[in-house]
Nucleic acid binder design. Structure first.
Length: 624
RNA sequence: GCCUCGGUAGCUCAGUUGGUUAGAGCAGUUGACUCUUAAUCAAUUGGUCGAAGGUUCGAAUCCUUCCCGGGGCACCA
């Protein structure tokens, strides 16, 4: 039945594994005897020449030429050439696992191999390993994509990143660099006296902002919880606990839109430092970025889109009111009414009315200023209206001790001096709670447990949260967040090919919504209008199961309706099927179809006259 | 959620205005070859054209719906 090329290749390779086992060679042994990485040999040929080494990695090429062959093995550090001479290769040996010359046809491109031999240079001058023993470490039963062109299909790159990094060096290096960047952040903060803590990703309340959370259910506790949209309230509890400088590299989950700079699951390094205010963090963040740039990437200039961002110079620090004045000519500090502020906005071409002077200034900032902040800039002094968790400035309480980081027109982190007056905070929260209660659907629960912690006294504290992905985008010069997240969020998909290889007959995938109803429930939900088709084309697929109980045939079954749910099938149990299980198969199928035609199909046609209905012939499964 | 572009062999891509049996390169298979490196040469296998429906004598091509992805907008830090 293997008519498909992939299936043929796969079967062929599985067959080679079987042949190897027949020769007492394990195609999946447990350990390698690697002595060198490719790069170590290539970088130090003078010292390695003539020595016997063992390398291990993926076999990326194999060029046979009579009694000679050349190949390349790719490991984490790079590729090194193998040079095979028929007369120098050890014969097949189950003791060492070595493959003799005759068995080399059981190797395939993409296999993980181990090669032992002397380090030499070929006539053409390439540093190579003159093969003595070749061992198979892992049989690959799927072929790699074309190595010359690489994986071009964006969807495949995102779904099968491991292939992209196998075939292409830049993405491989990029993700390694991002890992080093995170280590550097840790190292930097620990060097400044910070302690790293884990904070919960499953939280009973979702504090911080108005982001929509992911909801989940904790079976053991029998309650609903949320995936973290923020970790700051936990870090502040750590400050209450007596640790002065803490941080977490946290996972954040926001059930919102996806675009080139937003991903539903992302990470931030969030810090809290007690006995300091926001000015401390201005220095901290500037130093951190410079530290990463120089130690991980070895430079201070990075190309972001068409701009070049320079981290070597001191960052511009400017108040929001000043930068808005500079870019728009409007000084919002001098305005005395909301009306006046909105008139100024209108004059700037912004027509959405704002409820306060502060919010009007923020609107002007977002619309007219933000995108122009290319070089690293710290904008401080946000209006108090939009900063409920921050402390007001001593000299002008309309503004708060807060700053945001802008690089290449992108917001890269937020910071403020934390409000630690529990009474004021509770009042602020209550106010926003009421405001949002009026605004249907944006309901917030309050974290009274946190308020209680504050009541025991939290020292003056300041925190900062730069986004890891956005830092990675800047430092690795990527414009798409998917290119700094190894496993970006994708809808589950099962190819027809894999469905057939793995024997899955109904590729209904991990269902986004799965629903199984009794026939009666289904009909009543449809009548109430609670359940409606998602598609105009409905397909009714009966599935029958024939049982033999004590020699007597029994019939049971369910019906699947495609087109009702967006990404899944609706299953109906208990449909009225009038058929004699003892009938021959073909007649039985006809009887079932006829029976459904009279009940379910009639019902669907009557209830959803706009839909086109197809009744598939019943599928018969036999058991016992 | 809206707009827009795309999905053809395992991979990378052609496929004209709707017209014979959908093509190529790589990979695969078989064979030749003692310094190759996108090795070369010869032969050869391989397709639910994303899915379903429709229009038509005839559909990869036109229409409808759906699925998956990219880009943009909106929402949102």
């Amino acid at each position: 039945m293997a008519t498909n090329p992939l299936i043929e290749i796969r079967n062929g390779r599985v067959g080679k594994a079987t042949s190897l086992r027949a020769l007492k060679l394990n195609p999946y042994p447990s350990k390698s005897a690697r002595t060198h990485y490719a790069k170590a040999i290539l970088d130090d040929f003078a010292a390695q020449e003539g020595k016997t080494v063992t390398v291990a990695g993926r076999l990326m090429s194999w060029r046979k030429q009579g009694a000679l062959a050349f190949g390349h093995v790719q490991d984490q550090t790079g590729r090194i050439q193998l040079f095979m001479r028929r007369n120098l290769v050890q014969p097949t040996n189950p003791e060492t696992g070595g493959l003799g010359y005759a068995e080399f046809n059981l190797l395939d491109m993409g296999d993980i191999v181990e090669a032992t031999g002397k380090v030499i240079k070929t006539e053409r001058g390439e540093i190579s390993i003159l093969l003595d023993t070749m061992r198979l470490l892992t049989k690959a039963i799927r072929p790699l994509p074309d190595q010359w062109s690489g994986l071009k299909d964006r969807e495949q790159v995102l779904r099968k990143r491991y292939l992209d990094t196998t075939l292409e060096r830049p993405p491989f290096e990029r993700f390694a660099a991002i890992s080093k960047m995170i280590s550097a952040i840790r190292g930097f903060l620990i060097g400044r006296g910070f302690l790293e803590f884990n904070t919960p990703a499953i939280q009973p309340q979702y504090g911080g902002g108005t982001a929509k959370p992911f909801k989940t259910h904790v079976n053991a506790l029998g309650c609903e919880m949320y995936l973290a949209i923020s970790h700051e309230l936990y870090l502040k509890r750590l400050i209450v606990a007596g640790y002065d400088k803490v941080f977490t590299i946290g996972r954040y989950f926001r059930n919102e839109g996806v675009d080139r700079s937003h991903h539903p699951e992302f990470s931030m390094v969030e810090t809290m430092a007690a006995y300091e205010n926001y000015e401390y963090n201005m220095n901290l963040i500037e130093d951190m970025f410079r530290h990463i740039a120089t130690t991980v990437f070895g430079k201070t200039e990075f190309k972001v889109g068409t701009h070049t961002v320079d981290f070597s110079k001191p960052w511009l620090r400017i108040s929001m009111a000043d930068v808005v004045l500079e870019k728009t000519g409007v000084d919002f500090r001098t305005l005395s009414s909301v009306q006046e502020a909105n008139d100024k906005l209108t004059a700037l071409g912004i027509h959405e009315l704002q409820p306060s002077i502060g919010e009007a200034m923020v609107k002007a900032f977002e619309e007219k200023v933000e995108k122009e902040l290319i070089q690293p800039t710290l904008v401080f002094g946000h209006p108090i209206e939009i900063s409920p968790l921050a402390k007001p400035m001593a000299h002008d309480p309309r503004y708060v001790e807060r700053f945001e980081i802008f690089i290449a027109g992108m917001e890269c982190g937020d910071n403020w001096s934390e409000q630690n007056d529990p009474v004021t905070l509770l009042e602020t929260w209550r106010k926003s709670y009421k405001a949002e209660e009026r605004d249907a659907g944006k309901f917030h629960t309050l974290d009274f447990d946190f308020i209680e912690a504050l009541e025991f006294g939290m020292p003056p504290t300041t925190g900062i949260g730069p986004g890891i992905e956005r830092m990675a985008m800047i430092f690795t010069e990527q414009e798409n967040i998917d290119d700094v997240i190894f496993f970006p969020l994708m809808k589950p998909a099962l190819s027809h090919m894999n469905a057939s290889i793995y024997g899955i007959h109904e590729p209904s995938l991990a269902p986004v919504e799965d629903l199984a109803l009794s026939s009666d429930e289904f009909e009543s939900l449809c009548r109430d209008g609670a359940l409606k088709p998602h598609d105009k084309n409905l397909t009714v697929k009966p599935h029958l199961r024939l049982w033999t109980v004590a020699g007597q045939p029994r019939l049971s079954g369910h019906v699947e309706i495609e087109g009702f749910l967006a990404n899944s099938v609706l299953r109906l149990a208990g449909c009225k099927i009038n058929a004699n299980a003892a009938l021959p198969e073909e007649e039985l199928k006809k009887a079932v179809a006829a029976s459904l035609e009279l009940s379910l199909v009639v019902f669907l046609k009557k209830t959803f006259p706009a839909c086109h209905l197809t009744l598939s012939p019943p599928t018969l499964m036999k058991n016992g």
